[in-house]
Design a binder for these strands. Structure first.
Lengths: 77, 77
DNA sequence: GCCCATTTGTACGTATGTATG
DNA sequence: GCATACATACGTACAAATGGG
């Protein structure tokens, strides 16, 4: 859950959730995460906020984002 | 100048300009960059776009941002 | 301690661009 | 051409931190 009163910003909380989903196997390598639109609706946050979480994961090397295709989980090196 | 038709996004172009200003001595160490509001007006871009450029410089370790005080150029290590 | 102005930080909703299939 | 999805950008609104009076 994303809690507006958690002190931690929403985009960081979402990045945490996605990171968890990746390491737990909920989002396996070579599969896409849910789309930004889907995540924004499921969590009640703006699309731009979701994109910011995507930015973090990309910078961390966990995913690769492809316009028109989605955000893909990278295999562990 | 920031050119909307340059192919490169505005926030990256601004980060380039600020990086240049830092390395050229226009923005010396231990001094603040112009505020986000000032930069947005000078370049005709949104405040949010300026903040995104600030994010880049911070991640690169070139500046330190302090809410309420500004964006400060760090001395070279 | 309390207001006030300034400044960064987060978030929203919307619009448009670009890429993919 | 069309639908989907990420990418950029806008303008706005508040929140939070800082410093001065």
């Amino acid at each position: 859950m994303i809690d507006p009163l958690a002190g931690r910003p929403a985009y960081q909380q979402l990045a945490d959730l996605l990171r968890e989903g990746i390491s737990s196997g909920k989002y396996p390598p070579r599969t896409p995460l849910p789309s930004a639109k889907t995540l924004s609706q499921e969590h009640g946050i703006a699309v731009g906020t979701v994109m910011r979480a995507f930015d973090m994961l990309r910078e961390e090397g966990l995913v690769r984002t492809v316009a028109g295709r989605g955000v893909w989980v990278l295999p562990k090196d």
